[in-house]
Design a protein around this nucleic acid. Structure first.
Length: 599
RNA sequence: GGUUCCGUAGCUCAGCUGGAUAGAGCAACAGCCUUCUAAGCUGUGGGUCCCAGGUUCGAAUCCUGGCGGAAUCACCA
C-alpha cells in the first residue's frame, strides 16, 4: 500500500512553512482533519497556528500553503480557503486507485505482526464461587476486543485469564456445600457447575446472616463482630488455613468444586466467543507472591508488625500503609497479583501487561504499581490498568442480595430469544434449515448484546436496561449485520464469475458524491484502528462501522448496483460494495461479532 | 472527609490531543417497498453542552472554584 496521503501533505506543509516563512512549525501543530460535509474538499488544514509564523492574515497564510501544495503534490487537485481553513481536494482518481489497491486485500486495514515483544492482556478474572454476570460480560468483551485490536495493529498478543480460585470466599461455598449439600453434584442436580457452586455461596451468606443475627440479639454484639465469631465464619477460616496447609480432604473438595465451576465457565466463554492463550490460577501464583513479599522484608522495603503481619508504607506516595500478608501467614488479594505479575514477566518478557479490570480497583492497581516499583521490578512501569466503568441497572448497581444480578447465561438466552422473535416476524428465513436458523438467532442476539456494550467508551459507566436496552434497529449490532447481509445478497446475485473477472475502469467524473464519500470513509479505517489501539477503545471501531453502514445504506437506497446499465459504473459499485462488506466484516471481527451472509 | 472518574436532546450514547452552524440512535410525528433484503431510507420537532469565572483569534473540549452523581480509601476480592 502506498504512503498515506495525509502524511505526505503534513510533511509538505511543514516544508512549506520552513521555506516560505522561514520558521519551524511546532511538532504536532500540523494536523489534517476531514473536511466537514458543508464545504468542498477532502482534507482541511487549520492555519491559525501558523499565522504567527507567517506574520500574515489567516487567509493569506492559507493561500500561500494551498498554492504550494497544489504545485508540489501530484494528487492535489484544488484548494479553497474559508476564513482560516484551507480545504484541500484530491483528484477522484486517487480514491479510485485506493479502491483498486484495497479490494484484493481480504485483511484490509490489518497490519502484519511486526513487533518483537508481546503484549499480555489479562481479562475475565472470575472468582470460582459465583457464576458470570453482566459485569463479567463487559469485561470479557472488552478484553477480547482489545486483544483483537492490538493484534490487528501488528502486536503479538497473549490473552490470559487469572482465575481467582482460592481464598476465604471460595472456602465459604465449600463449607456450605459440605454442611448442606448432601453430596449433590451438577449431574444429580441438573445444574451447570458454576451455578450449583454459586447457590452454596449464597446459602453460606444466608446462614451466616441468621447466625449473626442471633448473636447480635443474644449477646448484644455488633454485626461485624457477630459475623466474625459465628460458627460458620470460623469454619470458613479454619478451612482456609487447612487449605494453605495442603490438607488432603480440603484440597479434594476444593478441586472437585472448582472443576464443576470451570466446566460451567467454559460453556459460557465458548458461547460468548472469548478464549485465552493461558489460564493462570491464583492458587498457583500466590506462593510466588508470598516469597516476593518476604524478599521485600529482607531488602527492608516492607516491614513486619509485632503480630507478624507484613506491610508496605506508601504514605510518601500519597497513599496509605497497605497489608501484604496476614499475621497467620495467609495471603491477601495483592499478594498473588505481585506473584502473577512477576511470573508473567519472566515467561513472556512482554513490552506491556494490560489488566482489564473495573474502575473500582483503581486504588488497588495504584498500590500494585507502587509496590513493584519499591521492589525495583523492571516491569513496574509496563503495567497498564485498563480501567473500565461499571454496568448499572435502572435500579442502580447489581446486588446479589437483592437478586438484581443479571446472569450471563440467562442474558444470552434472552438475546437469542428476542432475535428469534424478531426474525420470525420479518419472515425472511423461510428457506433456512433449523440449524441455520438457530445459528442465525445466536449470531444476531449476541451481536446485539456485544455491540450494545462495546459501543460505549470503556472508561464510562454505562446503563443497561434489560427490558428496553437492546434494540435491533438504528445504531445496533443487527443493523450492521443486516447491512453486511444486504451487500452479500448483491454479491451473490452478481455471481462468482463476474466478481472474478471484474476490473475497475470507471472514468473519475462518473463516480458520484456518495460513492466517493463511502470510499473515503473506508480509506480512514486503518487510522481508526490505530487510534482504537492507542486508546484501547473498541468503541471507536463500533462507532466507525456504524457510520460506514449508514453511509452504505444511503448509497444503496439512492443507486442501484446491478441494475445500472453503464457496466463500468456497475462494476465500480460492485467493487465498492465488496470492499464495504470486507471492511464491515473486519471491523466487526475486532469486536468479536460475527456477520451473517443472509438474515 | 481525602483521592479518582463522570455530568452533552425526554432516554441511551458520539464528539473532548482546543477549530467552521454541537451529532447519532431510541421515543413522537409525517412520508418512501411492481426495481439489488423496509432489521432500510427521507423529513419535522427537540439543546443555558451542570453552574460561575479564567486562558485563547477561537472552549462542549484546557485551567480554577462551586453544584450533582459514582467508585475507592478492608487482615473482601
Amino acid at each position: 500500500m502506498h504512503e498515506r496521503v495525509e502524511s505526505i501533505i503534513t510533511k509538505a506543509v511543514t516544508d512549506i512553512i520552513r521555506k516560505e516563512f522561514e520558521e519551524e512549525a511546532r511538532p504536532g501543530s500540523v494536523v489534517l482533519q476531514k473536511t466537514r460535509e458543508e464545504f468542498e474538499g477532502d482534507f482541511t488544514l487549520v492555519v491559525f497556528p501558523f499565522v504567527k509564523l507567517s506574520k500574515k492574515s489567516p487567509e493569506q497564510t492559507a493561500e500561500i500553503i494551498g498554492k504550494k501544495l497544489l504545485e508540489n503534490i501530484e494528487v492535489v487537485k484544488s484548494y479553497n480557503v474559508i476564513k482560516g481553513f484551507l480545504n484541500i481536494s484530491l483528484y477522484t482518481q486517487y480514491w479510485l486507485d485506493f479502491l483498486s489497491a484495497a479490494i484484493s486485500d481480504d485483511g484490509y486495514g490489518f497490519s502484519e505482526e511486526c513487533e518483537a515483544k508481546p503484549v499480555v492482556v489479562e481479562f475475565s478474572s472470575p472468582n470460582t464461587n459465583k457464576p458470570l454476570h453482566l459485569g463479567h460480560i463487559r469485561n470479557n468483551l472488552l478484553g477480547y476486543s482489545i486483544a483483537k485490536i492490538l493484534e490487528a495493529s501488528g502486536k503479538k498478543v497473549y490473552k490470559v485469564n487469572l482465575v481467582n480460585d482460592r481464598g476465604i470466599h471460595i472456602c465459604k461455598s465449600m463449607v456450605a456445600w459440605k454442611l448442606f449439600g448432601n453430596g449433590i453434584t451438577p449431574e444429580k442436580s441438573g445444574k451447570k457447575g458454576d451455578k450449583l457452586v454459586g447457590d452454596y455461596y449464597v446459602k453460606f451468606e444466608n446462614e451466616l446472616k441468621e447466625q449473626a443475627n442471633k448473636l447480635m440479639i443474644e449477646k448484644f454484639m455488633s454485626e461485624e463482630d457477630a459475623r466474625k465469631v459465628s460458627p460458620l465464619m470460623q469454619q470458613a477460616q479454619t478451612m482456609l488455613v487447612k487449605w494453605e496447609n495442603k490438607d488432603a480432604d480440603t484440597l479434594a473438595i476444593w478441586s472437585l468444586m472448582n472443576g464443576w465451576v470451570y466446566e460451567g465457565f467454559d460453556e459460557t466463554y465458548k458461547r460468548l466467543g472469548v478464549s485465552f492463550d493461558k489460564i493462570y490460577k491464583e492458587s498457583e501464583t500466590y506462593l510466588h507472591g508470598k516469597s516476593i513479599v518476604e524478599e521485600g522484608v529482607e531488602k527492608g522495603v516492607f516491614y513486619k508488625k509485632d503480630d507478624g503481619s507484613i506491610w508496605v508504607d506508601l504514605q510518601d506516595e500519597g497513599l496509605d500503609e497497605k497489608l501484604l500478608l496476614r499475621a497467620d501467614g495467609t495471603s491477601v488479594y495483592i499478594t498473588q497479583d505481585i506473584g502473577t505479575a512477576d511470573i508473567r514477566y519472566k515467561e513472556a518478557q512482554p513490552a506491556e501487561m494490560i489488566y482489564v479490570v473495573g474502575n473500582e480497583q483503581n486504588y488497588h492497581f495504584n498500590v500494585l504499581k507502587k509496590v513493584l516499583k519499591k521492589l525495583n521490578k523492571p516491569y513496574a512501569d509496563n503495567i497498564f490498568h485498563l480501567s473500565y466503568g461499571m454496568v448499572e441497572l435502572p435500579q442502580g448497581k447489581m446486588k446479589s442480595r437483592e437478586g438484581t444480578v443479571v446472569d450471563a447465561d440467562d442474558l444470552m438466552d434472552e438475546m437469542h430469544k428476542t432475535a428469534k422473535e424478531i426474525t420470525e416476524i420479518l419472515g425472511k428465513t423461510s428457506d433456512f434449515s433449523d440449524d441455520e436458523k438457530e445459528k442465525l438467532y445466536e449470531t444476531i442476539g449476541l451481536g446485539a448484546l456485544k455491540y450494545f456494550i462495546l459501543k460505549v467508551d470503556p472508561k464510562k459507566n454505562m446503563m443497561f436496561n434489560p427490558v428496553e436496552s437492546i434494540d435491533f434497529n438504528g445504531n445496533t449490532g443487527p443493523f450492521i449485520q443486516y447491512t453486511h447481509a444486504r451487500i452479500c445478497s448483491i454479491l451473490r446475485k452478481a455471481g462468482e464469475n463476474r466478481l472474478r473477472s471484474i476490473f475497475l475502469r470507471i472514468a473519475p467524473d462518473k463516480a458520484n458524491e456518495k460513492e466517493i464519500k463511502l470510499l473515503k470513509l473506508i480509506y480512514s479505517f486503518p487510522a481508526v484502528l490505530k487510534e482504537a489501539a492507542e486508546e484501547y477503545s473498541p468503541a471507536l471501531i463500533a462507532n466507525y462501522v456504524y457510520e460506514l453502514c449508514k453511509d452504505f445504506n444511503q448509497f444503496y437506497h439512492d443507486y442501484s448496483v446491478l441494475n445500472e446499465t453503464d457496466i463500468a459504473i456497475s462494476d465500480f459499485r460492485l467493487l465498492l460494495s465488496k470492499l464495504t462488506a470486507q471492511t464491515v466484516k473486519n471491523s466487526m471481527s475486532l469486536l468479536g461479532i460475527e456477520v451473517p451472509e443472509r438474515m
